[in-house]
Design a protein around this nucleic acid. Sequence first.
DNA 1: TCTTATCGGTACGCTACCGTTTCGATGGAG
DNA 2: CTCCATCGAAACGGTAGCGTACCGATAAGA
Lengths: 216, 216
Amino acid sequence: MEEPPVPAEAGTPIPRGIGARRRVLRAALQVLDEHGLAGFTMEAVARSAGASKATLYRHWPTSGALLIDAMDATFQPFPVPDTGHVATDVAELLAAFADLLERTPFPRLLAAFIDAAERDPALRTLHADLTRRRREPLLVALARGRDRGQLSVRLDLDLTVDLLAAPFFYRRFVAHRPITPDLINDVIAEVLRPPGSGGGAAAPVGGTAPRHQSVS
Amino acid sequence: MEEPPVPAEAGTPIPRGIGARRRVLRAALQVLDEHGLAGFTMEAVARSAGASKATLYRHWPTSGALLIDAMDATFQPFPVPDTGHVATDVAELLAAFADLLERTPFPRLLAAFIDAAERDPALRTLHADLTRRRREPLLVALARGRDRGQLSVRLDLDLTVDLLAAPFFYRRFVAHRPITPDLINDVIAEVLRPPGSGGGAAAPVGGTAPRHQSVS
DNA sequence: TCTTATCGGTACGCTACCGTTTCGATGGAG
DNA sequence: CTCCATCGAAACGGTAGCGTACCGATAAGA
């Protein structure tokens, strides 16, 4: 995905092309943000980048390949807080995530990407990979909490990450309701199960009563 | 949104147009499913419907208006089970929902719709409304459970619906991992808090410890 | 300084979709 | 049966994107 600023040493010269490349990638994200997947066009990106279509085709064979590189470049990992309290760490990560969803162009990019990933296997793979990387900080924070004894060793960490992160996506992309600060507290309260009181089931539930166990 | 099958009685005849209209709506969904939002074109829909473009423009001024009507027509409410056990009812609803996500064209339609809703306020409104209607059965099942005393009266039902439904969307559209039957059990176990044992926090969590309360 | 790969700009023919119009066919209502 | 609103088909000029090819300009490496 990267090219060294200076040719490694081999016969291939390839020295100069990265400036334009970066400008095109930035422009690609801007076009995707403003006009969605339907407006994501080689012409539109070239226009927005002040570049020539020929330049785009020199670097990327198709608009899909360009989209993949552009989305790949968006990833920025969250730093993992380490306060000693798992709930605090998780709250901080979720707050940063909520901010990403409410106050940056990220969600509009993701919405376009979700649609694209439905029909292009390569994009689908990249999307799954980016998601995995984005989950990492939360997973680390939970693992630390478990090692500290703040979480049950039987807790399925991957499932917990799902349960923690999912409501934010749901609110933003499906329900289209605002993500309130309360949501962070409520989600943590429900999923991490604080010790004391709190709402919840008060009587046994029957029928296909959940066996609590999970593999993946 | 509806036209009476037979003219109510007024001067307007409007008898014959609904056959073609339905065919076009079906075709619109098929095109959206197969080619995504980028391929959603008046020409493509007309072709797929075996209809004339003129016919489409007689009924819908723009492709966006057609998309709205088509998506609106997709809604089919789940029947609300009523077994007397809230966990069983919820499990049944979630199983039906998982099936909808894994074995029907619905999710691809929704993915296209999510992207479209980011940029068109009318689609956004419709999307929010469809989601609200889709939540209704789960909400009813939870309310019955609460009235039966199986859930705390302090439980925020809307939040609970969020927490129950969100992981399925997340798995399908974001993480791109399969929705296993275990997920249903795990989600219910976490969110509805079965009485007995089960994984979860084992020690107090400090810091910005969650105040468990929510308004909406 | 000289070379050379990459650059932006422009133009090409091609295809697809737009939104409208005109036409003859058709089928339901009176 | 007759009427007539609606239908499908076809064609229109216009716009936009595709992917390719060529150009002179330019900036980095030798």
